[in-house]
């Protein structure tokens, strides 16, 4: 089985890109499915379903989305085993910029859009910097100059990543992404052998447990104070 992690900021076009890509894969007879991770609401499962893609969704709700994601990978594998999927794509939207769902030995994809601003590649952490493939969307609405500067900025922070332009609306480029998905490495060994590419953020404090009051008296656990000159 091939496991592929796809991450990116909200509204960067992950779902549109994936639907076009999975349509191309399924047309080639590949049994592929998606698990969508999000924080509060995700209606995208309906979009996948209407495109005929097997889909599950996970909403982290009150839990840290990053930790929720990693503690459910076993469930993901269980599901894809039961459905006899040859390829399972994990789409995660709810992660913070500090975080990354990418797993060693699996294809790691980051989706960014051209409209998000030239500083975006620098601001996004390991989900971009440790990706194998960076998909850049919305290229059809910005100038050639902006596209080139954006791609250069992405390449500067992720020098080894392959940059690919995909148009989520027309599907242009999705065919190429599908080829990369096909060439993704297969999972080696069992679950116990899987390692994250980058550790999850540390979190254990009173606010993790539902504290809503503000002020030093209520801050118990891991905290760090802002340095102000």
């Amino acid at each position: 089985m091939q496991l592929i992690t796809v991450a990116g900021p909200p509204s960067s076009g992950k779902t549109s890109v994936l639907i076009k890509t999975l349509e191309a894969l399924m047309a080639d007879g590949i049994a592929a499915g998606v698990i969508k991770f999000d924080c509060l609401v995700a209606d995208d499962d309906a979009v996948y379903r209407s495109a005929g893609v097997p889909v599950q969704k996970g909403l982290s709700g009150v839990l840290c989305p990053d930790h929720y994601f990693v503690s459910n990978i076993d469930r993901v594998l269980e599901w894809s085993g039961r459905r006899q999927l040859a390829m399972t794509v994990i789409e995660s939207a709810g992660l913070c910029n500090r975080c990354s769902p990418h797993i060693k030995g699996s294809l790691a994809v980051c989706v960014l859009d051209n409209v998000s601003g030239l500083h975006t590649p620098k601001k996004i952490g390991p989900m971009l910097k440790l990706a194998d493939v960076v998909v850049v969307t919305k290229g059809d609405i910005v100038s050639q100059a902006e596209r080139e500067v954006f791609a250069f900025r992405v390449q500067s922070v992720a020098p080894r990543a392959r940059i690919i332009r995909v148009n989520g609306r027309s599907g242009q480029g999705a065919h190429a992404l599908a080829e990369m998905f096909k060439a993704a490495p297969a999972l080696q060994g069992d679950l116990a052998a899987l390692r994250l590419r980058f550790p999850m953020p540390a979190a254990l404090c009173s606010y993790c447990l539902g504290e809503t009051r503000v002020g030093p008296d209520y801050q118990i656990g891991q905290f760090r104070k802002l340095n102000i000159d």
Partner: peptide, 16 residues
């Protein structure tokens, strides 16, 4: 296609 960047002509061309 249009320019979406919040910058001047000179700034974008400089970057490009």
């Amino acid at each position: 296609m249009s320019f979406v960047l919040d910058a001047t002509v000179e700034e974008l061309l400089g970057l490009h």
